[in-house]
Design a protein around this nucleic acid. Structure first.
Lengths: 187, 187
DNA sequence: TCGAATTTTTAGTAATTACTGAAAATGTGG
DNA sequence: CCACATTTTCAGTAATTACTAAAAATTCGA
C-alpha cells in the first residue's frame, strides 16, 4: 500500500476510513477504491500485494463488492486468473449502488409497512402507530418509485434536471398553467 | 417490549433488525422506532422499560438520535424529566436525515476529492486516478447540490415533482423548446 | 446552597465482526 | 483425468463495538 503513488494512496486510505460509515469495512472500501482508480483490471494477488491484505481477505472483499455490483469480473486472454474492474461510466455505478441500497435497506421496510397497514389495530396506541407507518410508507414509496423512474432517464437528461436545481418549480408551475390553458381551449 | 401492542412491536423489532444495515445499532433503531410511532413524547425511563434496555444504553442511544437530529427534546410542565419525540412532519424527518447523512458520509469525500484534484499527478497511474476522481467529484457535487436545492422546495412541490416520474423529461424538453422560440423572437 | 431526581460517564464484560493462515475445493490446460 | 494454478472455505484469533451496572455529575426545586 505504501508504494502506491500519492494520489492513489490518499484515495484508497480515505475509502478505508469512510468504509465503516458507508456500511462496508475498511478492507472492502480500500479494495474498491483501488479498483476504481486503477487504469487496468486487477487480480486478487495484485490487490493483496498492493494493500498488504491476506489473500483470503481480498477474496471475501471481492465477493462482497460483486454482491453490490460495484466490480465486474473480467478475464484476460492467456491468463487464468480473475481480473476485476469498476464500470467506466460513473452514472452506471451510481445507479447500481442506489438500486442495491434500495433493495437491501429500503425494500424490507416497505414490505413490513405494507403488511402492517393491512392489519386492523386493536387499540388506540396501535391505531396511532399505524397512522405514522402510513405516512412513512407514503414517503418511501413515492421517493423510491420516483428514483426508479429517474434512473431510467439518460445520464444527460438527469444531469440537465439536476442542473436546474430548484428552478424545476418554475417549470412545474409553467406546465400546470399550460395544462389549464389547454383545458380551457378544449372546453 | 413484549407488552407493546402488536403493530408497534412489529415496527420496533423491524427497526432493530435493520439498524445495522442503516449504520446504527439495534438499540438505537428500536429507540427511534418507538419514539416515532408513539402518540406522546417519551422519557428515558419509559423507553428503557418498554424495550428492556439498561438506562445508560437508552441515554447513549438518545444522544446518538439527537446527533442525527431525529428526535426533539421536549419538556413537559411540572415534570423535570426530559421527553423525546420525533418531528411530526415526515418530510422534515426525511430532510434532516438526508442532510445529516450527506454531512457525514459525503462531505468528507468531496473535500478529499477536491484536495486531490488540486495536486499535480507525478506519474501515469496518478494521472489516471485523478481523472477518475474528477468524474466522481463531478457526480457527487452535482447530485448533492441538487439535493440541497430540491430540499428547499415545499413538500407539495417535491411530491408533485416526484409524481411526475420520468415524464419530467417531456417537461424539460418542452421548456427547452420554449426557450429556443423565445430566443428566436428576441432576435 | 442542600439534597433528591435525573442524566451522563466510565470501567468492565459480552457479543459481534474482521482478519489470517492453512486446508479444501474448484477449475483448466495438457 | 491428472497436475497444478487459483479461489474459497474454515477454524482460530484479534479487534471492534455494544451493553450493563455502578459511580459521578448535573439540574433544579425548596
Amino acid at each position: 500500500m505504501n508504494q502506491l503513488p500519492p494520489l492513489m494512496h490518499q484515495f484508497v486510505s480515505h475509502f478505508g476510513e469512510m468504509g465503516s460509515r458507508w456500511g462496508i469495512n475498511r478492507t472492502v472500501g480500500q479494495i474498491y477504491a483501488l479498483i476504481f482508480v486503477s487504469a487496468k483490471p486487477l487480480n486478487a494477488d495484485d490487490i493483496a500485494e498492493a494493500l498488504e491484505f491476506s489473500r483470503s481477505n481480498v477474496s471475501i472483499g471481492l465477493k462482497e463488492l460483486q454482491g453490490w455490483r460495484l466490480v465486474k469480473l473480467k478475464h484476460l486472454p492467456g491468463d487464468r486468473r480473475e481480473y476485476f474492474e469498476a464500470p467506466q461510466d460513473i452514472w452506471e455505478i451510481f445507479k447500481s449502488l442506489a438500486e442495491e441500497k434500495r433493495r437491501r435497506e429500503v425494500e424490507p421496510t416497505l414490505s413490513m409497512l405494507r403488511a402492517s397497514l393491512m392489519e386492523t389495530p386493536g387499540n388506540a396506541a396501535d391505531a396511532h402507530a399505524q397512522k405514522r407507518m402510513q405516512q412513512m410508507h407514503e414517503l418511501i414509496d413515492l421517493s423510491s418509485t420516483w428514483f426508479d423512474d429517474v434512473a431510467r432517464l439518460s445520464p444527460e437528461t438527469i444531469a440537465r434536471l439536476m442542473r436546474m436545481g430548484s428552478s424545476v418549480k418554475t417549470v412545474l408551475d409553467m406546465t400546470d398553467k399550460l395544462k389549464i390553458v389547454r383545458r380551457k381551449n378544449e372546453a
